[in-house]
């Protein structure tokens, strides 16, 4: 019952492509355990290049674990994960490569409180990409323009509002020039009036053609931005579909129940 074939338009016969797009992320048969608790069971998922995939589901359904497996913040116990043609294994070089290609934005921002905003953004590029300081700072300023807070560059994260901090976190991830961005409930820790400013930034990012995987509870956002919506429950992918179809005509009973509870 759990496969990506719910919406036929996204299935290609060619194994390296999906919906006419190059394959960016591929999970097949992924299991993940925390002790005896099974957090993910038999996950099959394909994300194409430039695709915006929104993952929704009740809390504890394994959404966060799923995307944390993609950049190896959690290791999977069974199955195969491929990111941009690189397989995630115990090999630390592969892990480093994949982390270089994926950016992640966390629910709690996880900005470095002892560094100024601009140092937060330039740390990765300077350390990992070995970018010269000047170039890294120029890029950081461009990114801050893009998330609309260039005037905060020299402040510390603690001086900013939650929405501003999350936008800095997005800029920090983008500074690594990733091919894929993972968003782990980026607006769940924000006050209501700040949610839209963060979602706007993500929405603009989606328009640039970057591959995004977004775990969120913002259904309006899912509807507007997603190419596909994945519904998860109890560590399984229950249903996959295009947003229109997904929200208006869900097939599975669990999806219908979830949507009736939150909409």
């Amino acid at each position: 019952m759990t496969n990506t074939a719910t919406n036929t338009s996204h299935v290609d016969s060619d194994a390296t492509r999906i919906g006419g797009r190059e394959l960016m992320v591929e999970l097949s048969g992924v299991d993940k355990f925390f002790g005896a608790f099974q957090a993910l069971s038999n996950i099959d998922m394909k994300v194409g290049k430039g695709e915006v995939v929104v993952v929704i589901g009740p809390s504890g359904s394994g959404k966060s674990t799923l995307i944390r497996c993609i950049n190896r913040l959690e290791h999977h116990d069974r199955g195969r994960i491929m990111v941009d043609g690189i397989e995630l294994t115990e090999d630390v070089r592969n892990i480093a490569l994949i982390r270089k290609e994926t950016g992640m934005v966390f629910q709690q921002f996880n900005l470095f409180p002892h560094l100024t905003v601009i140092d937060n953004i330039t740390l990765g590029p300077r350390q990992v990409l070995k970018m010269p300081k000047k170039q890294a700072e120029d890029r950081a300023m461009e990114l801050l323009e893009r998330v609309k807070i260039p005037e905060q560059a020299r402040k510390f994260p603690g001086q900013l509002s939650g929405g501003q901090q999350q936008r800095v976190a997005i800029a920090r991830s983008l500074a690594m020039q990733p091919k894929i961005m993972l968003f782990d409930e980026p607006t769940s820790a924000l006050d209501p009036e700040m949610i839209s400013e963060v979602l706007e930034v993500i929405l603009e990012l989606a328009k640039t053609g970057m591959t995004l995987i977004v775990v969120t509870h913002e259904m309006g956002f899912a509807r507007e931005a997603a190419d596909r919506v994945i519904f998860m429950a109890d560590g399984e992918i229950v249903e996959v579909g295009e947003p229109e179809h997904f929200f208006t005509n869900p097939q599975e009973e669990r999806t219908q129940l979830f949507l009736s509870q939150i909409l």
Binding site: N71, R72, L73, A96, R99, K100, T102, G103, M104, F106, Q108, N110, L111, F112, L123, G124, Q127, V128, R172, S173, M176
Partner: peptide, 11 residues
């Protein structure tokens, strides 16, 4: 989360 943020950046 601080360590994870560093890891996610590939450090």
């Amino acid at each position: 989360g601080q360590i994870e943020a560093g890891q996610a950046a590939g450090m």
